[in-house]
């Protein structure tokens, strides 16, 4: 564990806490893409198949449980909670994410570390996570003004993978034979997708103005 990876995990956890706060405090999920939340639930379930077979550390197991439980809880809230579900932007959250799932799985069948069920699903989860934010970014562009908590949620979610890129660079330089090409390249693509969001987020922070993404 290095400082970059810890910062990445804490930033990821923070993004989830901010989203839970937004939904709990405002009893609303307006501006949140349910499709992105569902993709993340798939990402975590596909990635943590080793949850009960490979014990790495208490921290590792604890965080995996947190990520799986929180993503499923958020999807449940957005689908079934009597108050929260009413504020879902159904007509704006129309990204056909089936293609993202299909393409990621097809790529995982071709490019993986080892051709085992666990490794193929791990690669699948890496590719899917790289594009999972797309429905959310599309929704932000369509829904015009973005409330602060939603903006912070997306910002921390994008920032966590940037910390992981620093972590991979650090490990590549300090650990012999360390390579994570699949996660590394996907992580760069994932973080690059946030580029324009980060730009408008920085502008809104500098001008102390409302975050607005051009349609």
């Amino acid at each position: 564990m290095n400082i970059f990876r810890l910062a990445g995990d804490m930033t990821h956890l923070l993004s989830i806490l901010v989203l839970l706060l937004k939904i709990y405090a405002t009893k609303s999920c307006s501006g949140i893409s349910r499709k992105t939340q569902e993709l993340y639930a798939i990402v975590f379930m596909a990635r943590y198949l080793d949850l009960f077979t490979d014990f790495i550390s208490v921290y590792n197991t604890f965080m995996k449980l947190i990520f799986i439980a929180s993503s499923l809880a958020i999807v449940w809230c957005m689908r079934f909670h009597p108050v929260v579900r009413r504020s879902y932007d159904r007509e704006l959250d129309t990204f056909r994410y089936f293609f993202l799932v299909g393409a990621s799985f097809a790529l995982a069948l071709v490019w993986h570390d080892k051709f085992t069920l666990q490794e193929v699903f791990w690669a699948f989860s890496i590719y899917l996570e790289a594009v999972a934010i797309l429905p959310q970014l599309v929704l932000l562009q369509r829904s015009g003004n973005v409330d602060n908590l939603t903006g912070q949620y997306v910002f921390f979610l994008g920032a966590y993978r940037a910390f992981y890129i620093l972590n991979w660079i650090y490990r590549y330089m300090t650990e012999p034979r360390f390579t994570r090409w699949i996660a590394g390249i996907s992580g760069v693509v994932q973080t690059a997708l946030y580029a324009d969001f980060f730009y408008y987020y920085f502008i809104s922070w500098k001008n102390n103005s409302k975050l607005k993404l051009p349609a």
Partner: peptide
């Protein structure tokens, strides 16, 4: 080897 291909990250 396990560590090498092992997935120790989240």
């Amino acid at each position: 080897d396990e560590q090498e291909s092992g997935k120790d990250e989240l």
